[in-house]
Design a protein around this nucleic acid. Structure first.
Lengths: 199, 199
DNA sequence: CCCCAATGTAGACGGTGACAACAATGCTGT
DNA sequence: ACAGCATTGTTGTCACCGTCTACATTGGGG
């Protein structure tokens, strides 16, 4: 438990240390730069050690994805003021999502990578579902308040999520002037809300 | 020029052969399975040969991205009937885009990967712009026909593209029941059109 | 208190991308 | 026609990676 990283044989919480370091490397250099061996080196452990905690590299990536969805869920939940007009709440959450998606672009790539198959595939899906729960609740509120047409909240949720995910993808690929991202979000969400109002 | 792939010293069009083989591997096994050495083997050439045509692996990926955008452009152009009510045309193009995006999911990942930096970054961007030209024209038609509010066509274009890209991402990640993808597209596009009509 | 399961180490293997030195080829100008 | 040269392939090498196996060190539970 010492700060000075004395090398004892048993690290103590290698798994957490590897994940933490991996998250940093991921943020700063991208998923391609992640190497189990280098992570081990960074953490001061032999190259075979990570294997005790992650069966293979994909397992590490999957664990990162779970971390990412958890963080995302917190971000979304915190962004919803909980009261006020629905469009304002939706806009706040939308901007929060896109903000997360651009701030943590590399993490997002890992979260939505297609390759998840490692522990049980459900772990990541469950984390993702949990992350979006607050948004579903928000949509239900919007329907109750008469801002959204009735129906399965997931219908609107899918459309909203798709829009935001697409905008984030555009921004992360540099296909949007960054300065205008929030405006794009506001514009797209406005269209979606108009098109989803009760008729 | 013989069919039986006699091994002469100079392949003739190694670059095209490598790209073609890479496209197949990409489609069948994903970007992670792409290996310059294996491609060289497949094409019957030494492991160092690809280097003459692609400075590094990223250059190969970038070339694949250009191919992808070209193919996408053809797909989109072919999907627009050119006449008829705007919503029908837009729906057809939208379904075509999502169809391409799911059929060529791995290629799409390469096309929208963040890492493009290789030859001049403009090559891919130019190919992308070209691919979306027909859609911009369609939007202009829609405005002229009174189906869309006036304004910069790119505003609606960005919103539309973001929506479709997001839906494709959801589908490719298995977060959508595949059977319902087209319905999701129709629903989302309908919302967007309603929200983008002149007021 | 001892033994075992968990955790970390050390070494090896095959594969990869990148690079350099060298060989074959075909195009160009004369 | 042909010499010379730029292009294109080849071969060998290097460092690195992920994975696997055999072994070492722990610490905690019977």
């Amino acid at each position: 438990m010492s700060e000075t990283a004395e090398r004892r044989y048993h690290h103590g919480n290698l798994r957490a240390a590897l994940l933490a370091r991996a998250e940093t490397v991921l943020r700063e250099e991208g998923a391609g730069a992640l190497s189990l061996r280098e992570l081990a080196r960074d953490v001061g452990v032999s190259h075979g050690a990570p294997r005790r905690h992650f069966a293979d590299k994909q397992a590490l990536l999957d664990a990162l994805a779970v971390v990412g969805f958890t963080r995302l869920g917190e971000t979304l939940a915190a962004a919803d003021p909980g009261t006020g007009p629905f469009p304002a709440r939706a806009g706040a959450v939308a901007r929060a999502y896109v903000g997360f998606a651009t701030r943590e672009a590399n993490l997002l790539d890992v979260m939505f990578a297609a390759k998840h198959t490692t522990p049980d595939p459900t772990a990541i899906a469950a984390a993702a579902d949990r992350a979006f729960l607050p948004v579903l609740a928000l949509i239900t509120d919007g329907q109750a308040a008469g801002a959204l047409a009735a129906g399965d909240p997931e219908d609107f949720g899918v459309a909203l999520f798709a829009t935001l995910q697409g905008l984030a993808a555009l921004a992360n690929r540099g296909m949007l002037a960054d300065a205008t991202l929030d405006e794009r979000v506001d514009d797209a969400v406005a269209r979606l809300l108009r098109g989803s109002a009760p008729r």
